[in-house]
Amino acid sequence: MTFQTRLLAASAFALLLAGSAAQAMPTAEIGNDNAQATPITQVGFHWFGDDDRGRGDDDDRRGSHGYRGDDDDDDDDGGKNMIRQQSATPPSNGLFNPGSTPAVQSN
């Protein structure tokens, strides 16, 4: 191996190192993002703040002034806290004849 070949190989190696260092830069930026995790945590605190406000709403709702919610179109939004019926069979509470199915009509 001639000196020039070794020099070329060393240059290539140096270039490789530089390339990997450059790729390491985004990692450092991610590190910066991580360093900015504090604001994210603070956002979390904001959520707690929202929750507090929500509790305030709950407190309001616990009064005699009807519930406060978002269901102006009542039950068809597929949102959470919806009761999901396991079946159309009434519970066995002794009130219903066995095997019966309720029928409902609204107009």
């Binding site: 009542d74 039950d75 009434p90 309720p102 029928a103």
Partner: peptide, 19 residues
């Protein structure tokens, strides 16, 4: 469970038939 339906709008009529 099994006996839940939609809420009832203002001015509307709900009829539920049960056995």
């Amino acid at each position: 469970n099994g006996i839940t339906g939609a809420s009832v709008g203002s001015g509307r009529t709900l009829k539920v038939t049960l056995d």
